[in-house]
Write a protein that binds this DNA or RNA. Structure first.
Lengths: 148, 148
DNA sequence: CGGATTCATCATACGGACATGATGAAATCG
DNA sequence: CGATTTCATCATGTCCGTATGATGAATCCG
């Protein structure tokens, strides 16, 4: 049992990898699978889901592969994870009783629970794939510049 | 796929329920299952795991049942969840490559990733079952007192 | 003691996450 | 066009989270 489903983790790591090559070239599922140490065909399905949800774009044939659909700074970690893991299924259910807690008049426990889950989710929403990547050449190149 | 395993959610809800009866009476697995709408025997296994990990205490026979091992203010939500869901398995793996990231000299992406997961976990550590419960009679009774 | 109640545990089963291998479809290039 | 490369998809299988039902063990009470 884990708090971070493996598929979602594959997705984030693949996105970070693609961010490092954004605007440069496409990366094939084969290469991504090798670098990530993930099963090739399974990852292919995962990447395909990201394409269908608009996070990635793909092209076939030689010179084909995957790339981020937009600049890494505009893709949050939550954008990637949400494709595979429901954001907050627990929030819909009352913490105390066996009923869907009324969202208009939730019980006290429910309010606190929703607050906690929202706060826990916040860093995933606030952080972008670009930040996670750490390679800021496409935004901060002028800052880092020749000093490295 | 969900970010909050059902078993862990059962555990939290059961703990909150037990907090409402803390110092009052034990609650049977049967009653907890009914209130939570959870399968009885499966919940029994879940509660038993909480007993073995020291979060709950149990007694058999009539007048038996489950109760929190200590006051609800001293039990964090993370204490309950950690019994079932690994806290941070993702943190051990490098975000970029297929290798365990060196904890002494982690890559930049890894550092950011660890930070994110830690921040996401923080509210679970900071919040106690007592706070979630909302019934503060055993600590704040003198504050709330007759004013309600 | 003996019956009733309740936790503890085992055997079994089902569905979905995870994975593997094979096949089909699109794009590039000679 | 035909061959190669790569994504897209299907069929199949394994493992674990989840769940069900039955049985054993401990505790209370008459």
């Amino acid at each position: 049992m884990t708090m971070m489903p493996r598929t979602a983790e594959y997705a984030v790591r693949a996105a970070v990898l693609l961010a490092r090559h954004y605007g440069e070239r496409r990366v094939s599922a084969d290469e991504i699978a090798t670098v990530l140490g993930a099963p090739r065909n399974y990852l292919s399905k995962t990447l395909n889901a990201l394409v269908r949800s608009g996070v990635l774009t793909s092209m076939r044939g030689p010179t084909g592969g995957f790339s981020l659909a937009k600049t890494p700074e505009l893709i949050s970690v939550a954008d990637v994870i949400d494709v595979f893991a429901d954001a907050e299924p627990a929030a819909a259910r009352c913490v105390l009783e066996d009923r869907p807690c009324d969202s208009l008049f939730p019980c006290a426990a429910h309010r606190r629970w929703v607050t906690i889950t929202r706060i826990a989710r916040e860093p995933l929403v606030a952080t972008t794939i670009g930040e996670l990547c750490g390679n800021h050449r496409w935004t901060n190149a002028h800052i880092i510049g020749p000093s490295l």
